[in-house]
Design a protein around this nucleic acid. Structure first.
Lengths: 159, 159
DNA sequence: GGCACGTTACTCGGATAAGTTATGTCCGAGTGCAATCGG
DNA sequence: CCGATTGCACTCGGACATAACTTATCCGAGTAACGTGCC
């Protein structure tokens, strides 16, 4: 049960895009430079964020990505769900209904499997925590140095 | 971020072992019959449960597995952690410290990354839910039909 | 009849292959800027 | 000198290879029961 590294990348990129609140979009190449990431692959991981309406993409010269909504309206769960998918990690395949131990007892299977209920409850708690934090919250917690440093680095290359 | 199917298998097997509270151990072949699972692979997934002290294995003829502790003392988290591993799903690789955007700012990196903190908090909530439920709780929630049916099936093959 | 021994069949345990998902790379479509040419 | 046009460089988007992990299988080591022979 490992989460793809794209989640970390996506969250950090959203944070940078929130810091650089310019109207001008930021290209993936620039974001990749900031974090020393493979530019092509980073682009691939940011595309689902566009599909889910978290980022807006501008094609063509001077194009790039920008936040589609205000940082207060983008939760961490939004980003995680966009990149990792919305389906639960635990998949109940109803093995209780299979095999010799369970045959001819269809009635009690109307109730969902108790194991699945526990797992679902846990995942809901996980989601609740992620949904309670927004990109804006992450901005507030960040030491002031990082945003200005990134902004300075960005302006040095654009001007 | 998908959880291996071994978790579902392991939990159901622990439940069956709790139902069949006999002193005699149950072989993996029997457990595989109950759920129509590949016996060899099921055995492979139950082995970590032995390593973690959740199951006890008895080699030789009439051997098999049995619960090492009382069902009240085996949490769902114990089983999940034994099979899936104890490490967090989210791995913070500290990309904030890499690249041109973050150089020469070692001081503020003493504080852990805010994103990692949020993810860790969410995973702790997930773990908390799983640790709050034991195999005994699952037994209590199960409709009474299933345990007796499995027990009957087991006795028909042993006697 | 009781006991010791050898055989046998059955179990777990870890080492070894195939399939599937995540990772990484590539090329094509589209867009805006800029330089150029004409008026 | 000003404007329209044409070419170009840069961007995203999705299709195509590679690597890692999950899933599945196999064989060897060990153990307990059982049958057999002996006392």
């Amino acid at each position: 049960m490992l989460m793809g590294e794209g989640v970390e990348w996506g969250l950090h990129c959203c944070l940078v895009l929130a810091w650089l609140d310019d109207r001008a979009p930021i290209a993936t190449g620039r974001l990749a430079e900031i974090f020393e990431l493979p530019p092509e692959y980073l682009k691939k991981r940011l595309q689902p964020l566009v599909r889910e309406g978290i980022l807006e993409s501008t094609p063509g010269a001077r194009g790039g990505y920008r936040l589609a909504r205000a940082p207060e309206r983008v939760t961490v769960l939004d980003v995680v769900a966009a990149i990792e998918g919305r389906e639960d990690a635990f998949r109940c395949t109803e093995i209780r209904q299979r095999g010799s131990g369970a045959s001819a007892a269809a009635a009690e299977f109307a109730e969902p499997c108790g194991i699945a209920k526990v797992m679902r409850r846990a995942e809901m708690a996980w989601r609740r925590e992620l949904a309670a934090r927004t990109i804006a919250d992450l901005m507030a917690e960040t030491p002031a140095g990082a945003p200005s440093r990134v902004r300075r680095f960005h302006e040095r290359l654009t001007t």
